[in-house]
Design a binder for these strands. Sequence first.
DNA 1: TATCAATATGGAAACGTTTCCATAAGGGGG
DNA 2: CCCCCTTATGGAAACGTTTCCATATTGATA
Lengths: 367, 367
Amino acid sequence: MRQPATIKDVAQHAGCGVASVSRVLNGSGPASAALRKRVLAAADELGFEFSEIGRSLQSSTTRTIGCVVPSLANPVYADAVQGAQETFQAQGYQTLLVCTSYNAELELNAIRTLMAKQVDGFVLTVSDALSSEGLKSIQRREIPHCLLFNMPPGNEESWSVDDRSAAKSVADAFHNAGHKHVGFLALKFKTSDRARQRYEGFVEGCAICKMQKPALLEINEDSQNLTELLQGFLTENPTLTGIFVSNDFLALATIRSARKLGLKVPSDLSIVGFDGIDVGTMVEPSLATIVTDPKMMGSGAAGTVLSIINGTSKPAQPDPEQSFSFRGGGSLAPPGAERTDGEKAATSSPSNNPTQKNAEIQPERST
Amino acid sequence: MRQPATIKDVAQHAGCGVASVSRVLNGSGPASAALRKRVLAAADELGFEFSEIGRSLQSSTTRTIGCVVPSLANPVYADAVQGAQETFQAQGYQTLLVCTSYNAELELNAIRTLMAKQVDGFVLTVSDALSSEGLKSIQRREIPHCLLFNMPPGNEESWSVDDRSAAKSVADAFHNAGHKHVGFLALKFKTSDRARQRYEGFVEGCAICKMQKPALLEINEDSQNLTELLQGFLTENPTLTGIFVSNDFLALATIRSARKLGLKVPSDLSIVGFDGIDVGTMVEPSLATIVTDPKMMGSGAAGTVLSIINGTSKPAQPDPEQSFSFRGGGSLAPPGAERTDGEKAATSSPSNNPTQKNAEIQPERST
DNA sequence: TATCAATATGGAAACGTTTCCATAAGGGGG
DNA sequence: CCCCCTTATGGAAACGTTTCCATATTGATA
């Protein structure tokens, strides 16, 4: 890797001072036509490009934003990051990405490193917004930031779904379908405060519907043995007829595991997910879920950070109550529904399902 | 945002010179126990962290890698980026992410900006490795880099599937299932040289199998009207019984569109995808496809870049011919197969499908 | 006790910018 | 013709590090 030309090289080449080169190339001050021409020629010949490092040192600004999410394997975060990155890019900001794998220690280290790199701001989804050391450091340094998918602990900026309300509406859906006892499956709460919020909302919703308190199964991020865990869970709670899984990605895996155990979905076990990822409409049976718009969330959070940096007005956020919608699907049906019926209903078209409250047309998305 | 303490502040606070602070905190030189204690105390009290900018300026190294991909909406790239990011992170490198939306101009600008930011290396998937201006700049500056999913134009480093061979095996699969005339659907070649490679291999494979030359449908990245385009394509080519779609993500969308047109998959139209994304095994019918391992590819490409930077030996790459495998699925069946048969076969279990050559157990993946 | 080596420490240069300030040159008005 | 104001230009400081070099201190050896 041979090193690039510096402003000094250009100055020497053009036979002038560095200040003049800076002025000409940035258009930031007067310069005679002759000088301008010489500088331009020299810069061109040397293939000169400004070093952002020198600039950053001088301006103490990097035009770089730290973006911290748990994982890109989950399409929700992938889409959110995509949205954020596009928004930043459009305003001339670069995105420094870190995936924390739901690991609080990694999260803290990553945030420290990004701070040392002097990012101008942060968009981040932390494990637990209340206890995150990384988040505290950011606050202490007063670095512009916006949470994403974390309900704000104080009066933080945040773009997030109202997890509790959404979870309540899932309880409603189960109740309407005739379920009496359902479960909740999620990542360990300490690795995801989203999961906890959803659980709390779900418990509350079940109570309102006079359903039994939901059984709880917490698993690890790296659980490769979901099938076994599910089996144990169902054995311990033999009256369960449905499970609310705290994200679609995990819900799909749960359906797969249920099948491995010889269970029919939804007749033996109904499943409802959370997120509304696109493929949920393509699986069989289609996945009943809470629909959200992660790309918009990411983009919004990015816009908020930029507005803090620039001191402009913040982008409008959708009403928290409207930030989600329930989408019915073949994976939720009355308990013990005739197997063939269930299948037929699901196979023909998801939108025929009687438990469906809100059938959305998903936009087509190609690669 | 209040500015952080600098090494000078620490020096002043500890009543010593900056050199000593640097030595103590980096453990890079001698220091008396007393001094060490004072410096540590001062640093702690001020909450001092080194500024990477100052360091970078001094060392002309940033410990940052540019990662350029078309889009995170496609799980293939999302997984690859995740793999790359993890590998970089493990070695203390940060990842500067750019999504180019398959846009060559954006690609070039992004690469220029990353170069100005002095990234130590690049992992990138470009639109067209032969013509990419950005790639040429990187080569000119001799910045360590590794292509990802691009077949190398010269003797570039690259982690990529052997698209041509893989596409040939798809032709085989169609032939074995009894198809005579099939089509190829992909993004416009100029936005994706992967698509072109796959097409060329597919044409060659079809020729070897004595099938008719495949019909070609190129679409734009932003095509929202896939259904219409598909309809036109099928009208123009009435003898088509199958389509090879150049990536799974698009293949799923194509199946959806085919259904909207009232076509049954696979009886009216067989579909084979490319990539082997996880959800392909969950959709109905399951998606016949070429299976690849994007996360491993991303991680491998990252390892290669790091080895170039450090002058260590490069990570071993899988044999190009083994870098993929064909996975049968319900979306590929003999043309005109009985509708109910096709459905039953697919519904019961993908691995029972007679056209399946290679049934892989996908690892469970939870969020 | 004088000398030498090793250790401890600080000053200053260098990295690549931007920007402030000073100087030089040119032109118009008194 | 001189002075002042504007325009053009370069020098140098500052940003936060690391590192080379010089100096000061210490302990041990002759």
